[in-house]
């Protein structure tokens, strides 16, 4: 079974696209946790058609009901990995427990990039701090690796990294480990990170209680966002936004992006508009790909 489109993120951009694609009779799956930037807004009073302020949660729930009624599937879960299958160009979208096949993917996860607010973090990007275990684990064979994160996404990165080194420490940065999928050989440090330091590359993570000698740090805090997937798939970004063409397609054919992760106005109206527009492009992409239309 292969979906026409798997949409990552169930905010207004993702769900709007799902509504249009489902109405076009395409097989659509939306995967996401929570409802993104809307969670920060309790009431919305600048969205067209509501004479009184509307509760953000109600707007979100109505959107999901609408998409479901029209035939879209919605899954409350976290996407930890997206990869392309080189034989046929299809995509695999993984959650901690399942894997879904798709002909196209829409990234609608909200703001693309999250840099950590830890002193030293920005200084060591590309000098021992990486966002991609599968790309850069190779450079830390047999070395001391730190993973910053605590959930399923961090566990997924740790699973990639144990192929390269057995010396892996998970820095949860003040949280409890929230996944049961961490490899058995990893160690945990649960106090807060104060600083990342070194000469010209990463050498040390300093926490509230101790200092740890570390050669490479992999960042996997929270859930993976569009920026993380962009790095792993090779999607071009600019100023921390996903770069798309006029049809909302990234440089990788079949992968589209919409909503806050492509930048511009961070508003529901714009996200909904992106969702409608990208659905038109996805439909025409699938039609050309299938050769005979749908």
């Amino acid at each position: 079974m292969i979906y026409d489109t798997v949409i990552v993120g169930k905010g207004p951009a993702g769900v709007s696209a799902a509504i249009y694609l489902a109405r076009a009779n395409l097989r659509v799956l939306v995967i996401g946790k929570g409802y993104g930037a809307l969670e920060g807004a309790s009431v919305i009073e600048n969205y067209y058609g509501f004479s009184e302020p509307i509760d953000a949660r109600i707007l979100h729930e109505n959107g999901m009901k609408q998409a479901k009624r029209l035939g879209a599937e919605i899954l409350e879960d976290e996407v930890i990995d997206i990869s392309q299958n080189y034989e046929d160009g299809s995509f695999s979208v993984s959650t901690p427990n399942e894997k879904f096949l798709a002909k196209s993917v829409l990234l609608a996860t909200g703001k693309a990039r999250k840099n950590l607010k830890i002193p030293g973090f920005m200084d060591f990007l590309g000098k021992g701090i990486s966002f991609c275990a599968i790309c850069d684990g190779f450079f830390f064979k047999g070395k001391r690796i730190g993973v910053i994160g605590s959930g399923d996404y961090a566990a997924h990165e740790a699973q990639e990294l144990v192929r390269f080194s057995k010396d892996i420490t998970i820095f949860t940065n003040g949280k409890e480990a929230e996944s049961d999928k961490f490899p058995p050989e990893v160690k945990f440090v649960k106090d807060k990170i104060l600083k990342i330091s070194g000469e010209d590359k990463v050498e040390k993570i300093e926490t509230e209680l101790n200092n740890y000698q570390i050669d490479g740090i992999f960042v996997a805090e929270g859930t993976a966002g569009a920026g993380d997937f962009a790095l792993k798939l090779g999607i071009v970004t600019k100023d921390d936004n996903i770069l798309v063409d006029s049809g909302y397609m990234t440089n990788i054919p079949g992968i589209f992006a919409a909503g806050d992760c492509i930048g511009g106005l961070l508003q529901i109206a714009k996200a909904v508009s992106d969702g409608a527009n990208v659905s038109i492009s996805i439909k025409s992409y699938l039609k050309n790909k299938n050769g005979k239309g749908k």
């Binding site: 990869s83 790309c135 071009v236 440089n251």
Partner: peptide, 14 residues
């Protein structure tokens, strides 16, 4: 680059 690195493959046409 390396052959197993997806973003490296994406960089190739650029």
């Amino acid at each position: 680059w390396a052959p197993w690195c997806a973003p490296c493959r994406a960089a190739s046409p650029i």
